[in-house]
């Protein structure tokens, strides 16, 4: 078991390293062009060169990277080129908003999907067909369209919620809940649709397995077999989909935050992208990759717990 965890941990660290390296090279390879874009098309070549050397972009890429990496390992991700703020502070202050959104959506999605998935797989018939149809719709409609719909219906017309803004959880839990409810709903609908499909599918497969009949023949009730044995066996593929969804939600959150004007990672990303503020973009990439690596590690451990073959091989 320790070796299993250790191996996963090492591969996660390696993944983080590779992603950041590739991202750095791609982002900074432009050298002079970056400086040109910042100072604008009307600037003289001398101005571009000056900007370039001011930002350290005129040095060899490898040296720039080495400097960035050694600093990054100490938690220093540099400063924004535009407002001079520390990237690490800028990113971490917004990280909590994004994570609370995404985590909230994933947890809600996981709970609801299990209930609906089991319902559809066990009852079949019209229940199943209804769940499948709604699921396809939820999956097909892009999350930001759902968000737009929610804003115009609940916030603009019914005025149940505030359309925009954010209250930190530490200030007021109620206020926090009121500001994140609509975004979380918007994010989770697509996620629920995808996970329900997977849980339903793998449950139906698992219910057809021979051991279900054998366990029932030994005197275990249908419900006990479903909740203890079948769900556990169907859990692996569902977890894998959940992991993919989590990564997708990190991207989806960018747009959702924009719609609800939430001060999350998305906002800083959009601003930095528009300006070409590369240190900040790099900081966002590091943060996202770190989250992805941690999530994958947790999912891998959960898979190992569910499936002894994964754990013991």
């Amino acid at each position: 078991m320790y070796r299993f965890v250790l191996r996963r941990l090492l591969s996660g660290v390696l993944l983080l390293f590779v992603i950041t390296t590739v991202a750095y090279v791609l982002l900074y390879a432009g050298g002079g062009d970056i400086a040109r874009r910042i100072v604008g098309p009307t600037a003289t070549d001398a101005q571009v060169a000056m900007k370039s050397s001011q930002l350290g972009l005129d040095r060899p890429l490898l040296i720039q990277y080495w400097e960035w990496l050694t600093k990054a390992l100490t938690g220093d991700l540099g400063r924004s080129w535009f407002n001079g703020q520390l990237v690490s502070t800028g990113v971490s202050s917004r990280l909590s908003v994004t994570i609370s959104l995404v985590l909230g959506a994933v947890i809600i999605a996981a709970l609801i999907s299990v209930v609906i998935g089991v319902w559809a797989a066990v009852r079949r018939g019209w229940v199943d067909r209804l769940v499948q149809f709604v699921g396809v719709m939820g999956f097909a409609i892009p999350g930001f369209l759902i968000a737009l719909g929610l804003v115009s219906l609940f916030a603009l017309n019914l005025k149940w919620f505030k359309a925009t803004g954010y209250v930190p959880m530490t200030t007021s839990f109620g206020g926090w809940a009121a500001t994140v409810t609509l975004p979380i709903i918007a994010l989770s609908i697509g996620c629920i649709a995808a996970v329900v499909q997977q849980i339903r599918g793998s449950l139906i497969d698992a219910l057809r397995q021979d051991y279900v009949r054998t366990l029932r023949a030994r005197g275990l009730s249908f419900n006990r077999v479903v909740y203890k044995h079948v769900l556990r066996n169907a859990g692996g593929p569902a977890l894998a989909v959940l992991a993919v969804q989590f990564i997708g939600l990190l991207g989806g959150a960018v747009i959702i935050e924009q719609i609800f004007a939430l001060p999350g990672l998305g906002q800083i990303t959009v601003a930095a992208t528009g300006q070409g503020d590369i240190p900040v973009v790099m900081g966002v990439v590091v943060a996202t990759a770190a989250i992805v690596v941690i999530v994958n590690l947790i999912i891998d451990l959960a898979q190992g717990w569910l499936n002894p073959k994964v754990r013991l091989s």
Binding site: L15, I19, A23, L26, L27, G30, I34, V244, I247, G248, L249, L250, G251, G252, V254, I255, T269, V270, A272, T273, G276, D277, I278, V281, V284, V285, T288, A289, V292, V293, N296
Partner: peptide, 16 residues
Amino acid sequence: LMALPGMVVLLAARAV
């Protein structure tokens, strides 16, 4: 390729 959300990669690419 699947490790990072597509939106974030696209935004990062957009910066370059």
